[in-house]
Design a protein around this nucleic acid. Structure first.
Lengths: 346, 346
DNA sequence: GAAAAAACTTGGAGCGCTCCAAAAAATTGT
DNA sequence: ACAATTTTTTGGAGCGCTCCAAGTTTTTTC
């Protein structure tokens, strides 16, 4: 491939002038400009190679998105939540004229991904892994972590999951529900884990801040009607686990209301209900979480704890671009009551 | 930021040895390795800076995805088709350990995006713009263009849109339909354009190969039942235009069957039908295009011309990674008959 | 038409890295 | 103990670019 210097040689000007023709054309006399362009055309030179510019300028004009935990980018795009998040990030990138790099790298390679990514900053999906944050800090690039508060030195954005969970329980409690079950998130791979009350182990032990906060909110709401979360069955499923709905009906048939940690989980319950001919909300109330676009289109439409997912993505990207003093942002949630919740039968 | 040389100076070894510690640790004696690691730690050096490596090696370990035509990345992620496509690409990138760069840049800046993207290859969304292909070729990186055949020297993947369109018409014709309308794609911005027959202008004039092929398929199917596509109303809407469904009912009320170019368009018709209390398929049959996941979940489920969208994305990425002799691939489509089509009334 | 001002061009420096041929050090064999 | 062999380390070269201070040419002014 020809270089600036090659073009300069053919045009009879210096490297610097050729660079100016492409980057600061106003500085170059018209006839020289022509001559350089002609030489470039002749050599098939199509403009300065970005590789050289990267080293010289130290900028990539891109931000990186790292999926949370053990997920791949494909998992993010598959999930309604992930899609809306990436959508928000992409809107901000578009506005800033930056590229959005979706960076793969599971567990072991995650740290080297951070070290080597060709980006000017990061957005890290929620994670319990403190190493990741250390890696990001070492890179000395601006970054934001989502759904984990990593202290005052680290940018973070999370929703007020506790309040959202609390609002969900209060809503169901006000309708008269007293028999609950919780669909929580399994953070390791494998089949659903079912905690039936009586094991003695406290339910509120979650590795991820996201999960933990919501469980605390559920517990608080339950406490208000004199129930203990330790007496509520909790099913942990990995995101995307299709059997989540079936497990609910098979293992906690006595529940009249299901609290979930994602619309996705709630939708599997809806789907399974249709499959079994169980009427929602008459027989069972279901509350989703996140307020994804999907939640409005289910049958019945889902009552859900809504957050502004795309707004969160946009804000995250903007914080990376701004590269200002670290901030910890907590975004509000709002219970959106739709058709999937009703008074319990009888 | 410290560099390899700084670490070497502190550890009392050369630049090259420090590089080896990070890249070829087996070549370095254990005690030296320790010393270098210690020096690195002391200086806060976290591994070779990717900027230097990029210039030296000339590789980015990333492929770029450019949205079609005038779209931004956000538009791609918003659309069901775009999502599944990106999903497929991301699966292939994950498998290859590469980063997926979503590259913004509308029309005017599209060419410079190609020139400057920090990637080892490209996937170009469908486009009518020959300049884009020229730009991509000048960059001398492997690339694939989707839904446009740009000749034997250019990698391309497209579906057999003509056959799909033909199958859709044949299906409706077999059901007894004779009054059709077509929802086509407007490739410029603005409100829907409505072609009512009689204008004399041939309907089959589309700037994009994707659109053109499908129109040809529709025309062929119509010809089989002695209808001319020039006698069929055609409505062109920009992707994402929410009024598409309303325009159908307002402007072509006599149609008993609607042929579309995307599930998305078909879904707006379904939504509008619900809004107006019109029963589908009893009063109107609708055929989608693409077979997105959404098409299976509508009420009623959509009859659609399905393609393997994610498979196409994966294949495209793999072709870029393979960097082999140019190929032009045509992928099959399959008419999936579901609940949105039925015999016309009476 | 010469001096002053403005416009344009030049080429050195340096961004941080990896490769590689050659040098140096360590190990082995006799 | 020394040569031969193997292992380890070295530092020059070069990747392609942009910035910028200094130099050169052109234009303007009186």
């Amino acid at each position: 491939m020809p270089t600036l210097a090659d073009v300069g040689r053919v045009a009879g000007v210096s490297r610097g002038t050729v660079s100016n023709v492409f980057n600061h054309p106003d500085l170059v006399r018209a006839d020289v400009h022509q001559r350089v362009k002609a030489a470039a055309r002749q050599l098939g030179y199509d403009g300065p190679d970005p590789r050289g510019r990267v080293l010289r300028d130290g900028k990539f004009n891109a931000i990186g998105f790292l999926p949370p935990g053990a997920y791949a980018i494909a998992d993010v795009i598959r999930s309604p939540y992930g899609r809306e998040l990436v959508l928000g990030v992409s809107i901000a990138c578009d506005a800033a004229g930056a590229t959005l790099s979706l960076i793969n790298g599971r567990d072991e390679t995650r740290n080297s991904s951070i070290r080597e990514a060709l980006v000017d900053g990061f957005i890290l999906g929620h994670s319990a892994d403190i190493d990741l944050i250390t890696s990001a800090q070492r890179r000395r690039l601006p970054f934001v972590i989502l759904e984990s508060d990593a202290g005052p030195d680290v940018n973070s954005i999370r929703i007020d999951g506790r309040s959202g969970a609390l609002a969900a329980v209060r809503h169901l409690a006000a309708l008269g529900h007293r028999r609950f079950a919780i669909l929580s998130i399994r953070r390791t791979s494998g089949p659903p884990i079912i905690h039936i009350p009586g094991s003695g182990k406290s339910a509120i032990t979650a590795g991820f801040q996201l999960d933990h906060e919501r469980l605390v909110g559920f517990a608080q709401g339950l406490a208000e009607i004199n129930l203990s979360i330790n007496d509520v069955p909790i099913i942990e499923t990995t995101p995307g686990e299709p059997s989540a709905g079936a497990v609910v009906f098979d293992r906690v048939p006595q529940a009249t209301a299901i609290l979930t940690m994602s619309d996705w989980q709630a939708i599997t319950v809806l789907d399974e209900a249709i499959r079994r001919g169980i009427n929602i909300p008459e027989h069972l109330s279901v509350v989703g979480f996140d307020g994804t676009a999907e939640s409005a289109r289910t049958t019945p439409p889902l009552t859900t704890v809504a957050q502004d997912i795309a707004g969160k993505g946009r804000l995250a990207a903007d914080m990376v671009f701004a590269n200002a003093a670290p901030k910890q942002i907590v975004m509000p949630v709002e219970l959106v009551v739709r058709g999937s919740t009703a008074r319990p039968r009888r």
